[in-house]
Design a protein around this nucleic acid. Structure first.
Length: 336
DNA sequence: AAATCGTGGCA
DNA sequence: TTGCCAAGATT
């Protein structure tokens, strides 16, 4: 059986990660750790997640600790990791679970009802934390299945086909190890570019490789070009050292995060400084989001007046802000 | 159902 | 420099 081949490979080559229990362990990973790591890993690389995972679990060792945390502390701790709706939903989910006694649901259906847990994450927690034969379908599994079975239709059209193929491979023995094994295979051998087919445990049964198509699968629909938007960020400092910051609206881009006051971001941004001062343009920051480029002019001023929006923050730390603002903050501060 | 939502690394 | 991509969820 294909799954056994893959499990044998995983027994020898599983990557060590802070949230992972080694294969053939006689105990399972803590559902809290599995959930936290899976949410952090949504659209995010293992390398980027590691330090954040350690930081979160050191500061909040249980779901009860996280549920009791202040919103602004969790958002600041998440700053830099991106997709900030994940952090907002993380807190909502922690509080639901904590209120229910601190135990995560042990079924896919139960997990799916929680904020921030979708089809992939529910299946991942069910398999990895509870060893249930859930069908885990992430970008790795999509790629592995598209190659293994030479699926030529482009994503996302082929998604349900790939899911059915993934289901066919999912074993009833060691499903948790299997889920992590397929994803490790996709991350280390069946990679997006230059797949290492020569050392793949599924080399001999891979239809994509036999057809000479492995490296170009899965096919994807072309993406839209990103427009460029303009804006200005304002760094105001009080003579006492405080920095003018504001919390962004709870939804939308960078929602709920601490930020520098800015104009809107558009073709013709409306300049509305947060307070009246002698603003000096000190440079610009270029930053690319998921669906647009941003050129952000950075203006600085020293001021003491009452701001029209935001508030003075002592000992402000750029690391508590989303990366785009951290860049603008550092540039402005270095120019004052 | 297509759009929205971050960031850093890599070729 | 630019585009692609990563353990997706939500609306």
């Amino acid at each position: 059986m294909d799954a056994v081949t893959l499990l044998n490979w995983y027994d020898a080559h599983a990557r060590a990660m802070p949230w992972r229990v080694p294969p053939r362990s006689n105990h399972r990973a803590d559902p809290y750790f599995v959930w936290l790591s899976e949410v952090m890993l949504q659209q995010t690389t293992v390398a980027a997640v590691k330090d954040y995972f350690v930081k979160f679990t050191t500061r909040w060792p249980s779901v009860h600790d996280l549920a009791a945390a202040a919103d602004e502390d969790v958002m600041a701790a998440w700053a830099g990791l991106g997709y900030y709706a994940r952090a907002r939903n993380l807190l909502k989910c922690a509080r639901v679970v904590a209120d229910a006694g601190g135990t995560f649901p042990d079924t896919e259906e139960g997990l799916l009802t929680l904020p921030g847990i979708g089809p992939y994450t529910a299946a991942a927690i069910a398999s990895i934390a509870f060893d249930l034969p859930a069908v885990v379908l992430d970008g790795n599994v999509e790629r592995v299945m598209a190659r293994r079975h030479a699926v030529l239709d482009p994503l996302p059209d082929s998604k349900e086909t790939l899911r059915a193929l993934a289901a066919r491979h999912t074993p009833t023995i060691r499903p948790g190890d299997y889920a992590q094994a397929v994803m490790d295979l996709g991350a280390t051998i069946c990679t997006p570019r230059n797949p290492a087919c020569g050392i793949c445990p599924w080399m001999s049964e891979c239809e994509g490789r036999m057809a000479g198509l492995a490296a170009e699968l899965p096919r994807k629909r072309p993406k839209k070009a990103k427009p460029t938007r303009l804006g200005t960020a304002y760094l105001a400092r009080h003579p006492n050292g405080a920095t003018l910051l504001e919390t962004r609206p709870p939804k939308g881009l960078l929602g709920g995060m601490l930020a520098l006051p800015t104009t809107d971001w558009s073709d013709a941004p409306v300049a509305a400084p947060p307070l009246d001062a002698d603003w000096q343009i000190v440079g610009e920051v270029r930053h690319t989001f998921t669906h647009f480029h941003l050129i952000l002019t950075v203006a600085t001023a020293t001021a003491t007046s009452i701001p029209e929006r935001g508030g003075w923050v002592e000992n402000a730390d750029p690391n508590d802000l989303p990366t785009v603002f951290a860049k603008a903050f550092r540039l402005g501060a270095s120019a004052m």
